[in-house]
Structures are given as structure tokens and as C-alpha cells.
């Protein structure tokens, strides 16, 4: 028996965990999640393991032995280097920069999440790049762990949300942009948006969700660091693919210098 049964000041001391008392696939506290592995596997983002009991091996996804697993549950080949597979038996603690972590269960469902927020998932789920740039979609049945800046709130559509607070959405509630037209149209609106003069609330642009499903929001507007979702194939019709479709509008490529006399966004606003 261990002599370190009751550290701290008696009953008020900190809780001591050992492999028997650590929760299986549940939170230890709001910032730490414990995964139980019984000769199984989990996918996790590189460097998010903080401690483990037992015999667990961490292998990069490029490891030859894992080829089959990657083929069935990992569909973003181009960002595979950010992910590792934990394999073995024991209990493993996951955490991410003291952000709130939570686990979610999918039952034959789908959920799209901002790439930087996803921490780990069971291989029974398939991870795919979303068509929406910067997001990943999980499909299937299983558990995944996500980090957020502050606790996560679940909302039912129809709802409009702030872009920085959006963590993800489940069951296809049609994500789209929404602009407050009173602020963004007309000469004054354009000037306001460009210069910030005349009062912008910073909330003229939102994401809108309608339809059946769930929207996940974090309770702060500081974004988590972006992680790469991998490049998409450069094909016409692929958002972010970098190839304009045939018969495009000849739109100015982003970043091109604005010629004198051109008003850019304002010009388009007036239909010039």
C-alpha cells in the first residue's frame, strides 16, 4: 500500500489519482481528459498527451503498420503529420494549453468542427476534410475530444452566431454567411465598413444556421490556433483549390495591387 494516501491538508487536500480512480474516457477536471485504452487505438493531435499509465506507444500516422487504420478512418492524407496514433493498454491524460476540454459521442452521426479545436478521436470515427475551409468533419459512431476557449454551449438552429465563437455544427444545419444590410450597403455603409468611422459594432457579419441540427459555440471570442487541414486537390469547383471555374467573373485575384481609380469593394457595391 502506498504511503502517499492522503497528501495535502487532510480532506481538503488535492485529489490523488491512480489508474484505479482515474475515470475511463471521461474528464478528470474541466481541463484534462482521461482515455482508457484496452489494446486499442486512438488518434490524437501531436503533443497533447500529458501523462499515461501502462504501456502505450505513439506512432506517427506515416508508420507503415498503421496504413490500414489510416485508410479506414483518416481521410485527410495531407495533414497526417499533425496526428499520431496511440496504441496499447493503459490510461492516458490529454490536455491542451489549459483550455477547456470536452468529449462528445456521435451515434451514426456527423459533426463538423474547427480544425484547431479537435484534440483526439476514436478510430471508429472517420475524419474528413470539410468543404468549408479550415474545418474537419467526423462521421460515424464513437467518441471524440475537443478543446474550446471556455465551456461549450449547444444551440438549436435557426441561429446566427459570431464567427469567432463558432466551434462546429452537427447534422448539417446549412452554414452560411449573413450580413446586416443596413450597415453594409450604400455609400455610408461602405465607408463605414472600410474605415470603421461612423460607428461599426463589429457584429455586422455573422454565420447563419437553419435546419435541424446542433450548433456548438465556445463562450469566448478568442480563437484557438489554426491547424492546417491539409491542402485540397487543385480542381475546378473545389473551394480553396485555387482553380477558378470556367466562365468566372474575372474577379481580381486577392492581394493584387489596386489600380488607381479603382474602388475595390466599394466599386462592386455600386455595380460599376
Amino acid at each position: 500500500m502506498s504511503t502517499y494516501g492522503t497528501p495535502g491538508a487532510g480532506p481538503t487536500g488535492p485529489v490523488v489519482h491512480d489508474p484505479m480512480t482515474l475515470p475511463a474516457d471521461d474528464n478528470v477536471n474541466a481541463y484534462t481528459f482521461c482515455v482508457e485504452l484496452k489494446s486499442g487505438q486512438w488518434f490524437l493531435q501531436k503533443g497533447k498527451m500529458i501523462a499515461y499509465y501502462g504501456a502505450i506507444e505513439f506512432n506517427g500516422i506515416g508508420h507503415g503498420r498503421l496504413d490500414r487504420l489510416v485508410r479506414t478512418s483518416f481521410h485527410s492524407p495531407l495533414h497526417a503529420s499533425d496526428w499520431v496514433v496511440a496504441e496499447g493498454s493503459g490510461r492516458m491524460l490529454l490536455a491542451d494549453r489549459a483550455f477547456d476540454v470536452n468529449s462528445y459521442d456521435l451515434d451514426d452521426g456527423n459533426l463538423t468542427i474547427r480544425a484547431g479545436n479537435l484534440l483526439a478521436f476514436q478510430p471508429s470515427l472517420a475524419l474528413k476534410q470539410s468543404i468549408v475551409p479550415g474545418f474537419l468533419t467526423l462521421i460515424g459512431t464513437g467518441k471524440f475530444v475537443a478543446a474550446s476557449n471556455g465551456p461549450v454551449v449547444f444551440m438549436e438552429p435557426p441561429i446566427r452566431v459570431d464567427p469567432q465563437a463558432l466551434v462546429g455544427w452537427a447534422d448539417c444545419p446549412s452554414p452560411c454567411h449573413h450580413y446586416d444590410h443596413g450597415y453594409l450597403t450604400g455609400v455610408l455603409g461602405g465607408l463605414r465598413a472600410m474605415t470603421g468611422l461612423g460607428g461599426v459594432s463589429g457584429e455586422e457579419h455573422q454565420f447563419e444556421f437553419v435546419g435541424a441540427g446542433t450548433v456548438l459555440l465556445q463562450s469566448s471570442e478568442s480563437l484557438m490556433d489554426e491547424t492546417a487541414t491539409g491542402a485540397v486537390p487543385a480542381e475546378p469547383g473545389v473551394p480553396g483549390g485555387g482553380v477558378p471555374g470556367p466562365g468566372g467573373h474575372g474577379q481580381q485575384p486577392p492581394g493584387a495591387p489596386r489600380l488607381p481609380g479603382q474602388l475595390g469593394d466599394l466599386q462592386r457595391r455600386f455595380g460599376l
Binding site: 489519482h17 491512480d18 477536471n29
Partner: peptide, 13 residues
């Protein structure tokens, strides 16, 4: 998080 190390349960951190 306080983790106990005992002879039967070594810990890796």
C-alpha cells in the same frame, strides 16, 4: 492533476 506512482503502476509524463 496529482497522479500516484506505485510499484505496480509506473507513470510516464
Amino acid at each position: 492533476v496529482v497522479l500516484r506512482v506505485s510499484p505496480q503502476y509506473p507513470l510516464t509524463v
